[in-house]
Simulated assay, not measured.
Amino acid sequence: MSDRQMKLVNLNIGLPKKMTYNENKEIVTGICKKSVDEAYLSYDGFQGDGIADTRYHGGPDRAVCVYADEHYEQWEKEFNIKLPSAAFGENLTVRNMLESDICIGDIYQIGEAVVQISQGRIPCSTITKRIGVPKLLKRIVEEGYTGYLCRVLEEGTIHKNATIKLIKPHPNEISILFANEIYFHRRDDVKGIQKILAVQELADAWRKDLSERLAKLI
Results as ranks from 00 to 15, higher is better:
68 A>M: 03
17 K>M: 07
15 L>A: 13
24 N>V: 12
57 H>F: 04
185 H>M: 04
113 A>D: 01
189 D>T: 11
140 I>L: 08
37 D>A: 14
100 S>A: 11
75 W>E: 09
196 I>F: 03
141 V>N: 05
184 F>C: 11
135 K>E: 12
83 L>E: 01
198 A>E: 11
115 V>F: 04
38 E>F: 11
182 I>V: 15
20 T>D: 04
69 D>K: 13
146 T>K: 12
35 S>W: 01
164 I>N: 00
32 C>E: 15
155 E>D: 08
210 L>V: 13
217 L>N: 12
154 E>N: 10
76 E>D: 09
4 R>Y: 08
207 R>G: 05
22 N>F: 04
59 G>A: 04
103 C>G: 02
89 G>E: 11
45 G>R: 02
124 C>G: 06
155 E>P: 01
140 I>N: 05
37 D>Y: 06
105 G>N: 09
14 G>Y: 12
54 T>M: 09
25 K>C: 02
166 L>D: 05
116 Q>C: 07
5 Q>H: 09
2 S>G: 11
144 G>L: 03
184 F>Y: 14
207 R>C: 02
67 Y>W: 13
14 G>S: 09
167 I>F: 00
100 S>H: 06
21 Y>P: 03
34 K>L: 08
73 E>M: 02
189 D>Y: 05
148 Y>V: 06
143 E>Y: 10
75 W>Q: 11
95 R>N: 13
155 E>L: 04
151 R>T: 15
50 G>L: 08
37 D>N: 14
133 V>N: 08
212 E>W: 10
7 K>W: 09
124 C>I: 04
58 G>T: 02
96 N>I: 06
173 E>A: 10
212 E>D: 14
30 G>P: 01
116 Q>D: 07
119 Q>V: 07
36 V>S: 09
26 E>A: 06
44 D>I: 06
131 I>N: 01
76 E>Q: 14
121 R>W: 14
209 D>R: 10
25 K>S: 10
148 Y>P: 07
13 I>M: 09
131 I>R: 03
65 C>G: 05
156 G>M: 10
7 K>P: 11
207 R>H: 06
39 A>Q: 05
99 E>C: 08
114 V>D: 00
199 V>T: 08
101 D>K: 01
184 F>L: 10
61 D>H: 06
62 R>V: 07
21 Y>S: 11
69 D>H: 07
172 N>T: 08
148 Y>N: 06
94 V>P: 08
128 T>D: 03
90 E>K: 14
165 K>P: 00
130 R>A: 13
209 D>G: 07
180 N>L: 05
102 I>Y: 03
110 I>F: 05
168 K>E: 14
19 M>T: 01
190 V>Y: 02
210 L>K: 07
89 G>S: 11
118 S>T: 15
48 G>M: 03
138 K>W: 10
48 G>K: 03
47 Q>T: 12
181 E>R: 15
28 V>T: 03
90 E>A: 10
15 L>Q: 15
216 K>W: 11
98 L>Q: 09
112 E>C: 13
96 N>D: 14
34 K>T: 14
62 R>I: 10
